[in-house]
């Protein structure tokens, strides 16, 4: 997998670079957008990560350039701006996702993976999710583990689905709030902890091994290898 990063801050770029190196991705880093089009032509990337505030052309302008040159590669924006206006603008322009700084690397990774998955398989989403011994029937809204049915409340079901879609990855509280509850900010409650605890009671406690892990300072991970 080849990723292209345009980010003017060396520290942040270095961090992202090392993170993706550890995970076995190949990442090309550009300090600004001047060489972006040429670089993409020479060495096509599977995904471009664009900072919004850049010297010279900003991220929005670079995206427009790419679309003018008919480069359909998925784009993920990084920005220090929190305004929804920018967010909407980013997505209007054909950006595929958006992450505000400071971000969790795990979250960046999760989003990158999701985008790559989306761009590579155009097949319709599966009606059943399977992770290790866990099976989730999205049509019937039923969850099974080791042949045993688990009764889940609505939000617990959505939470488990989200964890299963990102099995093996660390998902942050912020991602859960955003994806499961559709809130763009932290509502200031321990709702995620409470729902995760409830989910653990149902998915893990009756069985020998627990699948839902807490990662200190980062979030949660659904462990597929049980």
């Amino acid at each position: 997998m080849h990723l292209l990063l345009v980010e003017d801050n060396e520290g942040v770029a270095d961090l992202v670079q090392r993170g993706f190196d550890d995970l076995g991705y190949r990442l090309t880093w550009l300090e600004d957008g001047r060489e972006l089009i040429a670089t993409l032509r020479r060495d096509p990337a599977d995904l471009v990560i664009l900072d919004v505030m850049l010297p010279g052309k900003n991220g929005f302008e670079l995206l427009e350039d790419m679309r003018t040159h008919e480069l359909a590669v998925p784009v993920l924006f990084l920005s220090a701006k929190t305004e929804l206006e920018d967010r909407v603008r980013g997505l209007d322009l054909g950006a595929d996702d958006y992450l505000t700084k400071p971000f969790a690397f795990t979250e960046l990774h999760a989003r990158v993976k999701a985008l790559l998955r989306r761009s590579q398989s155009n097949s319709r989403p599966a009606s059943t999710l399977v992770v290790g011994p866990l099976t989730l029937d999205l049509h019937e809204r039923r969850a099974m583990r080791e042949g045993q049915e688990i009764a889940l409340q609505n939000k617990e079901f959505e939470l488990l689905r989200f964890l299963m879609q990102h099995a093996g990855e660390i998902v942050s509280k912020r991602m859960i709030i955003e994806e499961v509850w559709n809130y763009t900010f932290n509502p200031g409650t321990n709702i995620v902890e409470v729902r995760i605890a409830a989910l653990r009671d149902k998915v893990d406690r009756p069985f020998a091994k627990s699948m839902i892990k807490t990662v200190r300072g980062a979030g949660y991970r659904l462990n597929p290898d049980v």
Partner: peptide, 24 residues
């Protein structure tokens, strides 16, 4: 305001990233 946010958040991103890397 945008620059203020940017200039503060970029080092924060690095700081948070480094801490997260140690955790990982």
């Amino acid at each position: 305001m945008d620059h203020f946010a940017h200039d503060l958040k970029t080092p924060m991103t690095r700081l948070r990233g480094l801490a997260e890397q140690s955790l990982r």
